[in-house]
Structure formats: C-alpha cells, structure tokens
Design a protein around this nucleic acid. Sequence first.
DNA 1: GTATTTAAACTGACCAGTCAGTGCAAAAGG
DNA 2: CCTTTTGCACTGACTGGTCAGTTTAAATAC
Lengths: 213, 213
Amino acid sequence: MTAAVAAARPAGGENGAMSTSSTRRDATRQKLYEAAVTLIAEQGFSGTTVEEIADRAGVAKGTVYYNFGSKTELFEGLLRHGVGLLTDALRRAAADRPPVEGLEAMVRAGLEFIAAYPSFAQLFVAETWRTNRAWHDTLRLLRDEAVSVVSGVLDEAVRQGALAADLDTRLTASALFGMVLVVALDWLAFQPERSVDDVHAALVRLLRGRIRG
Amino acid sequence: MTAAVAAARPAGGENGAMSTSSTRRDATRQKLYEAAVTLIAEQGFSGTTVEEIADRAGVAKGTVYYNFGSKTELFEGLLRHGVGLLTDALRRAAADRPPVEGLEAMVRAGLEFIAAYPSFAQLFVAETWRTNRAWHDTLRLLRDEAVSVVSGVLDEAVRQGALAADLDTRLTASALFGMVLVVALDWLAFQPERSVDDVHAALVRLLRGRIRG
DNA sequence: GTATTTAAACTGACCAGTCAGTGCAAAAGG
DNA sequence: CCTTTTGCACTGACTGGTCAGTTTAAATAC
C-alpha cells in the first residue's frame, strides 16, 4: 500500500556517514552540478526548472531527487563545491610565498578560477549579497572562509612590515575581491581574447600604485 | 454608462507621445519601482510575483498591467530609472573638478549612491553579467553609459599627464567599479555603523597606492 | 542482489496575464 | 447651479499554464 513510503531516501548530501567512494553517484552529482551552475547562472534559481537541469545533465528527473533532497539542497551542494574549489586555489597560491608575492599570486588564482568557472562566478555575485534566501547562511559562511584567506595574507604582510600597520585589511580584502571579480567578469564578457597574463599585469600595476604619470 | 469603458489600454510606457505630467501615474509607477526593487533584490526576478509587488506598493495587481505592459517591462523601467540616477550622480561628481579629484569624488558618489539604494545595487550586480535575459541589451547599454563616465575621466587624466600614458583605462574603470561596488555592499552588510567618510578615506588611500609599510 | 537510475504519470500549489467593471474628476450641456 | 458624459486610473476575480516534488514498476549497473 501507499504504506511504508519514504523508505530509503538518502536525501542528505554531506551528512556524517561518508559516502563510501560511490564513484557512480559522484559522477552523477558532478554532472548535475555542471548542468545546474550554467542554467542557474543564466536564469536564476527560480527561473530554472529541475527538469531542465536533469535534461542537460542527461539524467532523469527522479535521479535529481534520488541524489538530493530538493532543488535547494542541490543548489547548496553546488555552492559548497564551487567555493571549496576557489578557497583551495587561493590557499595553494598563497602557500610557500612571502605575503606580498602571495597576494599577487592569489589575484592570478582568482582570475584563473573565474576564467575556468565563469558561470559559478556569475552565480556567486548574484547571490552573495542577497539576504532572506534559504542558503544565505551557508553562502555567507563559505564566503567568509574564502575572504579570510585573503585577509589572512594581508594581516601577515602587515605583521612583517611589508604593508602599513594601520591598513584596514578587512576592507582591503573586500576591495581586492571586488576588483578581481568585476575585472574578470568584464574581461570574459567583453575582451575574451586577452590573456590572463595581460589582465593580471594590469591589475598588479594598479595594486602597486604605479599609475601616476 | 457603466458601458464599454475599457477601450484604450495605454500599456506602452516610454512611447513617443509625452505623458502630459500625469502626476498620479508617475506616483504609482514610483511606488511600484520602490516595491519591486526591494523584492527583486531579495528574491530575484522569477522568485518575485507581480502580486507581491502590487501588494507592497499598496496597489492592485491590475494596476501593474495598466502601467506596464508586463513584469519584464516593469523591471526594465526600473533598471533604466536606477542606472539613470547613478549616471547622473557620477557626472555631477566629476563636473567642474580636475580629473584626479573628480575620480575621488566619483568614488564617494558611488558609495553614497549604493548606501542610498542598496537594493538597486544588489540587483544590479546580480543581473549585469547574466546573458540570455530579456533585458540584457538594455542593461548593457545602461551600464556602458555609467562606466564610460568613469573611463572618460580617466582618459582626461591621462591626457593631462596626471596618470600614466599607457594606463589601461577600460580595465581600470572596471576595477574601480568593482572595488566600490563590493566594498560598499560589504560595508552595508557587515559594518553599517561605519561612516561614508571613513570608508571613502580607506578606499582613496588604496587607490593612491599609499599602502606599503 | 543491492544500489542506482529510468520513464512516465500525477498532484497540488502557485502565478503571469486578462478583463469586465468601479470610482472619480473634469468637461459638456442644460 | 445641477446633471450627464467622458475617459483616465485602478480593481480583483478568474483562467490557462507551469512546476516542485511524489510515486511506481521496471531496467541497469556494480
């Protein structure tokens, strides 16, 4: 009968029990992330249907609900996944480098990340300052993690005397973040033929205050 | 007679015939803009219903369709209205000032604009790099107008020798734009107690390259 | 032989856009 | 004066369609 119903609905994604390296599920989830990120970047969360996502991933609608509890959970998983990649890239760029050099490497890592995942970057800007959304807390947490990698390096630079002691590192990290984000998105949207090196060089020059005539 | 009435449905908004200072309609449209900007900033375009907008504006749903042809047209009107305000503010800031000073005044104008219309700023970042949307062309046009005010001043500064001759003014304008946008949104979201002066000072210092220890 | 995926039908809520009609203020008419 | 007409601005119930999420039975991996 309608009975037992629910039965085994895995639903939860990142709960305690580690998914025992189920390669198949992981592959499906990956495909769903990739499909969802493009569509949601273009159309927004509410403007994108679950069926569209499933279709583009080449998967049945039911599979979405087998792998994720809901549309929202799929999206949260996607955010976690994406910001995780960015944070790792930033950390890797800063590692084993003196702070100021590390900062410039992080700028490059940011540009490269956005070039590699433009849809994610787009979606990220669109959602970051929105409040009252289901995933707002998740996103803010993730964002803080990424930004703190930057401000951490700035703090270290201040500690070593490479940057002014009274520098507002929080605001500076924001400014850096915004600069890279907007420059990268504009670059990709309007002058995609330019190389990363080129864009990076222009940005670094700006940062070093080597602008005046 | 109660009669046939309905007859003329104006629908179109910005057509040739100038609306002869219809104060009532203008007031209604203004209320609708104000209601729509907040809701769409919070929930996105597709996530916001026309009825919600009407309710918040204290108006019936039909009124929306009396004043605008569609939900999309309402939104486009809103974009035009908002970006127009920003562009004017930037132009006013730059007017009658030497370029470098004008630049710093524009940064302040940007901060003040975002502080005055945070929802609009939010909505603007969310939509600017989205492609494939109905209003994409409109928005790109408006954005170019605003950015060109900035790059125009940069060009003038280069011409006068105040900034380096080989400065990439387009990219620099983007960077400036991004910096102000993200810093302002973070400021309002996380440290709203800070004053504009304070934030402005920190930004200008960064721009002048007075960061090193 | 269990875990995962498929395909297809179904439900119930929600929503953009429509339309017949109301209210009101300023002419038009007497 | 008063009353009739005109037309703008607005109203809100209604319609046709859409979509998240469910359910099921059967197929396909591992």
